[in-house]
Design a protein around this nucleic acid. Structure first.
Lengths: 193, 193, 193, 193
DNA sequence: CATGAATGAGCGTTCATTCAT
DNA sequence: AATGAATGAACGCTCATTCAT
């Protein structure tokens, strides 16, 4: 009855996403996650350093896959505009399809002592770089203004998308997030031009 | 040496801003705030319902004043463009000048159970409305696209500004936030046109 | 608009009886009593040493008056039997007519550190003596057994009556306590014979 | 050196009896019980819902065993008189041999919000029923008056015994409680005849 | 690897009491 | 005498983490 290695690790991550989304990070007890995952409390500590590590790992897993997948989609795009459109669309579509993840990413994740968290900022930074690369590409391609401050532009782009998602999560997902892809793109691409 | 009424309330708010900014909301003990404010632990509970109420009240105070002051500046502006510029500038300048408040607003405040928090969302909503009004005005004035989705535009505008501030706070305020006012405005106003 | 001296003292005692009966001694805050009495918190401490002192004083007041009044009734009785009947009847009638007092006497009063409480035991002791005197008188009058252990008899007599009252209070006073006067008397007087 | 399951539960009950008897329920800190039991504070909460639950559980344990044991003794008795004698004797003997339990039962237990306490009244009710059954049996056997109000008789019987124990506890157990078995029986049985 | 009983540090909150006015 | 704002000691309870099995 051997279980595949890593199966429990995955069970715990899954359970954590569900539980954090339902109850919130601080209100979730490690014991709750363990029960949801069908393992003993102690088992959680075989796979994770501590409670915070679960949240961070969970985010890393999601983010790394997200960026990888997004990247492999971007290479198929012709120019920066198409890429920006893809980014926005992929970002919104992904979270629209995974409400629990969206909740955790937008709300619960921000309940950690940011200052310390390497673990969160590193994968996020990779996403930021991706956006910046696209912006730079757009400048090179003559699609966007030459005098654009890439870093600031990236912040506005990411901040804009992020806020749209946050509002959707806080509204209890009562409308179609994906439908906002187009208008958000229009707003941002014009900003860059 | 009688103290003015309300002075303690103010002392506690002040102490809380300082302490939350320094230590983070969850790591701050009510006793820490009390000591910093120079009052007894119990005194805190004369003025606030509980620890969370301190954070919420604090934000309400700041936000209500912020929106009021901003509003009185806006009425002096000629058109939507000028108003948008004022909003961005006022937002960045205000927080650039009050690093502790910025820290609390951008980071600590987001550590609360959003679901519950009427107290936070109401004053924020007023700010959102202000932004939306400006966007609508711009449409009316023919400055911005007619087909603009005001709500989505507002989210991108606010999200963009907010992310710029958050990045500045997380960078430990190592650069001049106010200087970003102009590029952020350019990005957003073009997006709206 | 001068108030008679002692008026507030009385107001507080009254408020305490009501509040203790409604909420229970431990759950009652001194501030509750003060509000009910229409005085400031601090005023309570002008008239009473502390919270416990209110309960004790209250009981002393009641008990001393109870014993005095009972005594003056007893002198009019012919023999021990009549006196015993009077004691039982008076005890039950008094408490039946003052449900709040009954609640406090039977339930709340017993929540105090008995060991220490002089204040409670002294007035109670006087009541015990009264009962013992009647029993002794009954023995002298040949109404009760000569070999009766007066102290033990007193305990059984008082305990019997007391339990009847307690049961009535705990039943939320759903039946006529006074009606039990006769059967209780029958049980106790036969026990003494 | 594995401990038997349930051993800690028992340790805590034991520690609680000792500590409540020595210090009184309200003055006892949960930490005191834990220390006395040789367990951590948190361990107490694995076995008991809260502090009050310790007191209630403790009483239930004692009372249920008391009633069971008493019951098995009663079935060996010939008639109601013998049974009544057994009840009184068993009641006094049991408590005389366990002064800590007596203290807790007679004094500390009465410091709880009666209103709520199902937990206390249920096992007590079983004892009351036992007494009532004996009284009824006595009536059937022609030993006691036919016109006896069983419920009232039970209250007087229980109240009488209870008061005798309370007085003994409050006197710091300076005399032999068991010796009162005979006179109390005489008083009560005559009352029933 | 897995378990889950046990741990004990940690803290928010209450409220009886005081005292300057 | 009266006030009521302020005090601060006191403690029940939680829960992340450990470790013997």
């Amino acid at each position: 009855m051997a279980k595949r290695t890593g199966e429990k690790h995955h069970d715990i991550i899954d359970a954590a996403v569900k539980t954090f989304a339902r109850t919130g990070y601080h209100r979730t007890r490690v014991a709750d996650i363990a029960r949801e995952a069908g393992v003993a409390d102690g088992t959680v500590y075989i796979y994770f350093k501590n409670k915070e590590d679960i949240l961070v790992s969970l985010f890393q897993d999601l983010m790394i896959r997200f960026v990888e997948d997004l990247y492999s989609e971007l290479v198929q795009c012709q120019d920066a505009n198409e890429k920006l459109k893809k980014i926005i669309n992929y970002h919104l579509t992904t979270l629209a399809g995974k409400p629990d993840q969206a909740k955790v990413t937008q709300i619960e994740l921000r309940q950690i002592d940011q200052a310390i968290n390497e673990g969160i900022s590193r994968p996020l930074k990779r996403y930021f770089e991706l956006i910046e690369e696209v912006i730079n590409e757009g400048i090179q391609q003559g699609l966007y203004r030459k005098d654009l401050d890439t870093k600031t532009a990236r912040k506005v782009v990411f901040g804009g998308i992020d806020e749209v998602v946050t509002c959707w999560v806080m509204s209890n997902k009562q409308y179609d997030l994906t439908a906002l892809s187009e208008p958000v793109f229009e707003l941002l691409v014009r900003g860059l031009r």
